[in-house]
């Protein structure tokens, strides 16, 4: 049992993408949403609900692709992503405020 689940998680982790944030570069996987992975990299991201309904974690997506396992309740502005529930699907560049 244990070895099977380990194998699966290893397989899933193979997809690694780069997240550019200013001069920083963070490597993320598709295993969990962006927010938790940014936090582990020591980056503070505003949050409240961590499940897509408050929009606090909205950050600018300059380029690249993310997807949502289920449609978030919060409005997602075009050119933004919700870090708490977005799965990174390609290399991306993000910024905290648009201007």
């Amino acid at each position: 049992m244990t070895s099977t689940s380990k194998q699966t998680s290893l397989q899933r982790s193979e997809k690694v993408h780069r997240v550019l944030l200013g001069k920083q570069q963070i490597l993320v996987t598709e295993d969990e949403p962006l927010l938790a992975q940014l936090e582990r990299a020591g980056i503070h991201v505003e949050y409240q609900c961590r499940e897509g309904y408050c929009s606090s974690c909205s950050i600018k997506l300059l380029w690249g692709h993310v997807s949502y396992p289920s449609e978030p309740l919060a409005w997602v502005q075009s050119g933004y992503l919700l870090a708490c529930c977005a799965i990174v699907k390609s290399d991306i560049e993000i910024a905290f405020f648009a201007n």
Partner: peptide, 13 residues
Amino acid sequence: ARDEALHLTGTQH
């Protein structure tokens, strides 16, 4: 605060 998060999402929509 949990309720307000939902309310503000409502007015944002």
